[in-house]
Amino acid sequence: MKDVTITVNGVEHRAQVEPRLLLVHFLRELAGLTGTHIGCETSLCGACTVLVDGRAVKSCTVLAVQADGHKVTTVEGLANGDRLHAIQEGFWEEHGLQCGFCTPGMIMCSHDLLKQHPSPSDSEIREAINGNLCRCTGYQHIVNAVRSASRKMSKRVSARAAAAR
């Protein structure tokens, strides 16, 4: 057993774990955050995507011990109280989800994309989410959702910049 301390959504979680414990199981079983889903065991579906130190990773392919001392953000950590994150708003407004199972992973993956590329083209969005499978939407409304989020975030950034001036 190994002692790990992982900061999840700003809250420190300490636990003694088997080295083989996957990060996704740490999040779901030990931290009680079940918004991160498991959709396969071959690292291909992307449903378990979370941010580790800001970068999107598949938490089914990371050991909890590897995440020791790192900061993890899950879908539960995005909204600020009642205020949804712009990406969540985008998914809601553009009907970017149906059954919702792939959605947390899609959102977390989009989060990384928009941090690296605040104004991606549609084809860049499609490339960026190619590690996240959705069986319901045919992706079109997901692309719309990410595009809409990108516009909102850019607007907020420029509004903040204007306020700062």
Partner: peptide, 21 residues
């Protein structure tokens, strides 16, 4: 209309069967 079911789904605060304990 935006869906009524979405707020819980986009925040990951709902439960599929495997989420239950």
């Amino acid at each position: 209309l935006k869906r009524k079911e979405d707020p819980r789904l986009i925040q990951g605060i709902t439960h599929y069967t495997d989420d239950l304990k």
